[in-house]
């Protein structure tokens, strides 16, 4: 087996048993004498704020600059004045939230009375949603309430969510929903 130095490091970082020194073709002397290279050495570093609770801890994201460009490691940001490098168990698992085979990667559609999901395109899904919104909204749009006061609202469409969004997304979202006339607009803060 031809093993490059880089591959060797990757394997040593990834195998549970640690260094398979002799079988990799390095002498033990080499393995002990040379400093191992960090798996994050050539990664892109970006800062983030943890997406779980609201303490607001900083973390550093190491993203591979090569190949698939995915996350190699996420750990606490030592220069962040709140957490000073530390993270809880959820924060420490952030990389697994990102690199997770269970994630949704395509829009999906479930037709009425169907037993299954069907993968669809973004254009198809968003076009269809806009059509549904328009049909539902327009058939019951309320210009005036029972007292005759102008209300310009929709009550048969409702929205819940989301504190999982960024501030800018939250603002944009409520603006869009309120432009449609939604009054039933709620999110996690209510529960």
């Amino acid at each position: 087996m031809q093993v490059t130095r880089r591959k060797f490091i990757k394997i040593s970082g990834a195998t549970a048993a640690g260094l398979a020194v002799s079988s990799l073709g390095f002498s033990l002397k080499d393995a002990r004498a040379h400093t191992q290279m960090l798996k994050t050495k050539y990664a892109k570093e970006t800062t983030t704020i943890c997406c779980y609770c609201a303490v607001g801890c900083g973390a550093i994201v190491h993203t591979s600059k090569k190949g698939d460009g995915r996350v190699i490691n996420i750990e606490g940001d030592p220069d962040h004045v709140i957490n000073r490098g530390s993270l809880c168990s959820k924060g420490a698992a952030l990389s697994q939230l990102t690199e997770n085979e269970n994630r949704l990667t395509e829009p999906m559609y479930r037709a009425p009375y169907s037993k299954e999901w069907k993968t669809v395109s973004w254009d198809w899904a968003l076009g269809k949603i806009a059509k549904r919104v328009k049909a539902t909204r327009d058939k019951a749009f309320t210009l005036k309430n029972a007292k005759g006061q102008v209300v310009n609202r929709v009550t048969n469409i409702v929205s819940v969510g989301s504190s999982a969004m960024d501030n800018e997304e939250c603002w944009t979202y409520q603006a869009l929903m309120r432009s449609l006339g939604l009054v039933y607009l709620e999110h996690q803060a209510r529960i």
Binding site: G13, A16, N73, E75, L87, C88, S89, A93
Partner: peptide, 12 residues
């Protein structure tokens, strides 16, 4: 909190 337990798995 068991952050250490997870961080160990994450790094390795």
């Amino acid at each position: 909190c068991r952050a250490c337990q997870v961080a160990c798995k994450q790094w390795h």
